[in-house]
Structures are given as C-alpha cells and as structure tokens.
Amino acid sequence: MTPAHRREAADAPATATVVEFRGGSAMIPASRDVVQGFVARLREAGVDMADTFLDSARLVASELVTNALRHAPGPCRLVLTLVEDGVEIAVSDSGEGFPAFLPGDPLRIGRHGLEIVTRLCDEVVTRPHATGKTVSARLPLR
C-alpha cells in the first residue's frame, strides 16, 4: 500500500515540514525520503550540520514511524522542525500505548528502535493527547 502524504510545495520554508501518512509499510521508506528532502532544503538554506546528520535523521524518523505502524492503528503524522542546534523529529499516532524504553541487551532480537533513537538524540519525549500520542526526538545538527 502506498502511503498518501502531503508533499511540501517547492517554495515551502526550509525550517519545517509536515507529512500525513495513511498507513502501510510503504510509509517507512517514504519517511526517509521526506527527511532527505528536508535536510537538502536545510543545506540549501545554509544550515551547518555534521556529515552524518542525514543518515542519523533518516534512521530516527524511520524508527519512530515503524513504531507507529506496529503499535497504533491508522494514520500517523511526521513533523520535522529546525530548532536551535538540532532538528525535532516528531511522530503522532492514534495509539493509546506508550513506548517502552528498554535497557540495552545485545542478546535481544529486535525491539532496539528506541534504544537507537535515545543514543542518537539529545532528548526523546512522549506527549499524550486526546486520541493518541506524539513521540518527539531532538537530533543535534553536530
């Protein structure tokens, strides 16, 4: 299933983007594509970032979208925002459950997504709302 999402217009500001996904596994690689376009706009706007930033941002976004796909029914929203010295990557979904931050375990197979996200990001916060939650991760530019 191809996710339906709103692409930003060519003249959209470089500092934020919002994409709505209907669902389905295709939204995971699509989220990486959205991040790639966002980071390209940041670079064009002269934002200084580490050489590894794009790869880290793509990984964080795809892990958060994967969790939304696995643990929440229905659509999700990906919001990317330039904030001070980083980018906030936020995924909102309609699931009632909260993410489980598990301790590192090299013997565990799978369920390492949030472990990866917390190692890459300065801050990871879950905010509940009336019909679900938003998980936000702040990834430093350098």
Rank of each mutant, 00 (worst) to 15 (best):
I116A: 10
A16C: 10
L120Y: 01
D55C: 15
T81F: 02
F38C: 08
D93A: 04
T52I: 11
C121E: 04
S31P: 05
S92E: 07
E123W: 05
C76W: 11
P128A: 04
E8P: 06
D93V: 00
T2I: 10
E63G: 11
T118V: 02
G23A: 09
M1D: 08
R108E: 07
A26R: 10
A137R: 08
S92T: 14
G86Y: 02
V35T: 03
H71S: 04
D11Y: 10
L114Y: 13
P3F: 07
A45I: 03
M49E: 15
D85Q: 10
F21H: 07
E20Y: 05
S136V: 08
R43W: 09
R142A: 13
G95Q: 08
I116M: 00
R138L: 08
G24H: 10
V34N: 07
D11M: 12
D122M: 04
H129M: 06
V19Q: 12
N67Y: 10
C121H: 03
R41E: 06
R142D: 12
A68C: 08
A90W: 08
A50E: 10
G113S: 07
G113K: 05
I28V: 01
A57Y: 09
G46A: 06
A90G: 11
L59I: 11
I116K: 02
A68W: 09
A12L: 01
R70D: 08
V35H: 03
V79L: 14
E44F: 07
T81G: 15
I109K: 06
P140T: 05
F98P: 01
F38I: 01
S94F: 12
R77P: 13
S31T: 03
A68F: 07
I89Y: 04
L102K: 04
D55Q: 11
L54A: 00
A90Y: 14
S56D: 15
G74A: 13
D93H: 06
L82W: 12
V83Q: 04
L82C: 07
I109M: 14
H5Y: 14
G37R: 05
D48H: 00
R22W: 01
G24K: 03
K133A: 08
D51P: 15
L141E: 11
V60Q: 01
R142M: 01
G23M: 12
A40G: 06
E84C: 06
D85C: 14
H5M: 14
L59K: 00
R32L: 13
S56T: 00
T81H: 14
S94M: 15
L82A: 14
L82F: 05
V117K: 09
L141D: 04
H129Y: 07
V124M: 03
I89M: 04
V47F: 12
P106S: 13
G37N: 03
